[in-house]
Design a protein around this nucleic acid. Structure first.
Length: 474
RNA sequence: GGCCCCAUCGUCUAGUGGUUAGGACACCAGGUUCUCAUCCUGGCAACCGGAGUUCGACUCUCCGUGGGGUCACCA
């Protein structure tokens, strides 16, 4: 049976790169009919963020990549005695040793090494001293002199020369284990079969393999997934804007879209399709089809995929209503009424607005136009294939004709007929008329059609807005 | 700097010795005899360089070059 895990440190809003790794681990487990587990690696007391655990759980739930033990994850800080016991065992086996080198000595050592152009690393000062363990000392693993070769599920064979691996600390002076010891012990206890983690762990993998062997644990398979790069090519970091998964949530991205995009970033489905649900991915995912090279994060593509999922959501308007912001939802309910066609104003607006937005946080902007007069830019007011003169003719003629329509007839087909009449009588193109009226009413380059907006705004407000547009042009 | 990993359109990628090097995003043009959007059609655009191996290399090997990662009592 396959078991994978997601083992984040509780240090804040989870990075999208970590979540993608979690997704791969989840998908691999599901595809193999196995288990996906959660473990919290909180052995660094300095960076601990108490809200983070809940955030991690919320995010996994929101994305629907829930670990089997979501409510009861393994927490490393509660297992200190276990790590210590294993460290002591290694000490007894002479696979590890006590080191009392001071921080100062270590810093100095590194500096001299760096200065003389040598690789930095522990020099083995305490290796053969056979010091007794006392509180305040650290324990280091004794790296044997043998070449380490292993098969990475994504990269195939990777090998390391022992001279490049130094005697890593496995138990810190505060009694906490380092990652190296803790994860090996935990993965064994959780019966993890496949360690799927970020590529940045590749260089320390030989240490983990050695530790695992020393402790007599069964072998695990490793898969190192490539990192996500920023548009400038480096590691995607906070300097590149939003990288925390929560910020994507707050910006109105759909969980299913995020999942779809993250999967495509580095994994390929071996088909030309690109739209996938979680279920689809569970069926098709294979580590063999994960790319080796890092992939640059492309927000445009994410937006595009989000749009595709948004369109699908139109088929489930009840869910859609729960996803848009509260104010917008309330507003829609307030103005909702049945139209002669039998459709509701709410549904019509949903249908009109959703295809025009990339993400849900833009939704309220589209509703705002019904309560707030837009700021107009006279250069946008003129359709790109039109002229200022024709725009003025169109707006003025529309105003004049509109005056003749009684208030109770102010509904879309009438208004549309009106605009069509202007086109015909003044010998203009559709763009000459529809574009400036729509922009005058909405102030947006993308918005529902003018007659729809005008109907909801009412005759008086419509004419006021058009007259403001005429003023802006003159 | 040492070590490790990587390298096809601007971006995500398909391609496993013989292809007009395919798809998607973005961009551009056109269409949907109603604007913007949606949708549809078309266009632009790539094998990092050099040696080898081979009848034949984007595909295999080596060397460069470039990019990334890592060298903590952080994970």
């Amino acid at each position: 049976m396959v078991t994978t895990r997601f083992a984040p440190s509780p240090t804040g809003d989870p990075h999208i790169g970590n979540i993608r790794t979690a997704l791969f681990a989840y998908l691999f487990a599901k595809h193999e009919g196995g288990e996906f587990l959660l473990r919290i690696e909180d052995t660094d007391q300095k960076r601990y963020d108490e809200k983070s655990l809940q955030t991690i759980k919320d995010v996994l739930t929101w994305l629907k990549i829930e670990p089997e033990n979501l409510e009861n994850p393994m927490i490393q800080s509660k297992r200190l005695d276990i790590y210590k016991k294993e460290a002591m065992r290694l000490l007894e086996q002479r696979d590890a040793y006590v080191c009392n080198c001071s921080k100062e000595r270590l810093d100095e050592l590194r500096q001299t090494q760096a200065k003389s152009g040598k690789p930095t690393g522990y020099d083995g000062h305490c290796r053969d001293l056979n010091l007794d363990f006392k509180d305040g000392c650290v324990i280091r693993m004794k790296v044997p002199n043998e070449k380490i070769v292993f098969q990475d599920l994504i990269r195939d064979e990777v090998s390391f020369d022992p001279s490049t691996i130094d005697d890593q600390i496995i138990l810190k002076s505060d009694g906490f284990p380092t990652y190296h010891l803790a994860h090996v012990v935990d993965d064994n206890e959780m019966q993890v079969t496949h360690v799927i983690r970020s590529e940045e762990w590749l260089p320390s993998t030989p240490k983990h393999i050695i530790l695992n062997k020393m402790l007599g644990f069964r072998q695990v398979r490793y898969a190192h997934v490539p990192v996500i790069l920023s548009p400038s090519g480096g590691k995607l970091s906070k300097r590149d804007g939003a990288v925390g998964i929560l910020s994507f949530l707050h910006h109105g991205y759909l969980p299913e879209a995020l999942i779809n995009y993250m999967a495509l970033l580095g994994w390929n489905p071996k088909t030309n399709e690109e739209f996938f649900t979680l279920k689809d991915l569970e069926e098709r995912f294979d580590l063999k089809n994960v790319n080796k090279a890092g992939a640059i994060f492309d927000q445009k593509k994410l937006d595009n995929i989000n749009r595709a999922h948004l369109l699908v959501l139109l088929g489930d308007k009840d869910r859609l209503m729960t996803l848009i912001d509260e104010q917008s939802a309330e507003f829609l309910k307030k103005i909702d009424r049945e139209l002669p066609s039998g459709q509701s104003v709410k549904d019509v607006l949903l249908e009109l607005i959703v295809p025009r937005i990339d993400k849900l946080d833009e939704f309220s902007n589209h509703l705002e136009i019904f309560v707030k007069k837009p700021n107009l830019d006279e250069t946008i007011l003129v359709f790109r294939k039109s002229t200022k003169e024709n725009t003025l003719i169109a707006l003025n003629e529309f105003t004049q004709k509109a005056g003749e329509i009684p208030g109770e007839d102010w509904i879309f087909d009438q208004i549309k007929a009106l605009m069509e009449a202007v086109v015909e009588q003044k010998n203009l193109s559709n763009g000459d008329v529809f574009w400036p009226i729509r922009y005058a009413l909405s102030g947006m380059e993308k918005s529902p059609p003018p007659e729809e907006i005008a109907t909801i705004l009412g005759k008086q407000e419509t004419l006021e807005r058009i007259s403001r547009a005429v003023e802006a042009l003159q």
